[in-house]
């Protein structure tokens, strides 16, 4: 155990303010940020534009019209906006985070900065928070654009509960981005080469998007007995499949978003006939109930973010500063 961790004096947060401000300024003024923002807007604009076109024909028949902008699967572009985000947010987070720490090594600024009165904790946390803020700013901008476009093209103000749900969606999106930012930063601590860390983070992202659903299925299939004899057995299998899927942050994100933006969602797992008793099909849940429903998903995302951040923290503490 490094001795400096025990009994050292002074706040670990000394210097976090300047680090945060500098990183934020770097992000916001960088060309990369511009590219990423363009990227996310282009990716988001198509689904939104086409869902708006479709929704104009159904005004009046839907109590949650505004939320449909986010979730409807348009005819021309068969990707709902939230799904596009599910895909693009990790890319953006990785783009912001893959060289947070190793670029300081490569520019040979790390030892100089660390010879100023601050702990490594402050440097890492300041960088992470600045990245998260940048991400939040970009997502909030996108969110506002969608909302504004909705107001203009639907000519109808959203109801309070719709705004609340959409805001909840924004928070979940930032938490989801935070997980991937932490992952990207983890690789930037582990690898000195920025290319290697970018590739590793992108590789992990592809793994979770393409391979993991298939692997989860294969694992579940391995547990299927020759004959399913009871309902409990069947439910058990379903739950195993879901649990495996939920190891991917993308699944947690889409589940949380589904429950928030589709108020009719009553459960995120297998639905039993007993749960259907007394329910009116298609009746929306109150916001509080939806939040209760997604609580595990949201805490899961935040916990994942903290775990990955802690891992990079531990590795960074032990890293030698000399290049």
């Amino acid at each position: 155990m490094p001795r400096s961790l025990g009994g050292r004096e002074g706040s670990p947060f000394t210097g976090i303010g300047p680090v945060y401000m500098k990183e934020l300024a770097d992000h916001l003024s960088s060309v990369r940020m511009l590219v990423l923002t363009l990227f996310i807007i282009v990716f988001g604009a198509f689904p939104v534009a086409s869902s708006l076109q479709q929704l104009r024909t159904t005004i009046g028949s839907d109590a949650y019209l505004f939320l449909r902008i986010f979730t409807i699967e348009p005819e021309q572009v068969p990707i709902p906006f939230v799904q596009a985000l599910n895909f693009v947010i990790p890319l953006m987070a990785i783009g912001l985070g893959f060289d947070l720490v190793n670029s300081e090594f490569n520019r040979r600024t790390l030892s100089r900065v660390l010879s100023q009165p601050l702990y490594r904790d402050a440097l890492l946390l300041g960088k992470f928070l600045a990245g998260l803020t940048t991400l939040a700013v970009a997502l909030a901008a996108l969110w506002l654009i969608v909302f504004g476009a909705g107001l203009l093209l639907l000519g109808l103000p959203p109801r309070g509960v719709e705004v609340a749900r959409a805001l909840g969606f924004l928070v979940v999106a930032v938490a989801y981005g935070g997980v991937w930012l932490a992952v990207a930063m983890f690789f930037s601590v582990v690898f000195r080469s920025t290319a290697t860390s970018a590739l590793s983070a992108l590789g992990l992202w592809l793994f979770f998007f393409i391979l993991w659903p298939l692997i989860a299925q294969a694992i579940t299939r391995a547990f299927v007995p020759p004959e399913i004899t009871s309902l409990d057995q069947y439910i058990g299998l379903q739950e195993l499949a879901l649990a495996l899927q939920r190891l991917s942050p993308g699944t947690l994100f889409s589940e949380a978003v589904l429950a928030l933006l589709n108020p009719e969602t009553r459960t995120l797992g297998p639905m039993l006939p007993s749960q259907m008793r007394g329910a009116i099909m298609g009746a929306p849940l109150p916001l509080g109930q939806s939040l209760l429903l997604i609580w595990p998903q949201v805490t899961g995302l935040i916990a994942g973010m903290i775990v990955v951040f802690s891992a990079s923290y531990v590795i960074f503490q032990r890293e030698e500063v000399r290049a």
């Binding site: 400096s4 050292r8 004096e9 002074g10 030892s111 100089r112 010879s115 601050l118």
Partner: peptide
């Protein structure tokens, strides 16, 4: 134990 105090008073040119 007191790296911040040291680093406040010592200049380093790597």
């Amino acid at each position: 134990r007191q790296p911040l105090e040291v680093k406040r008073r010592v200049g380093y040119l790597p």
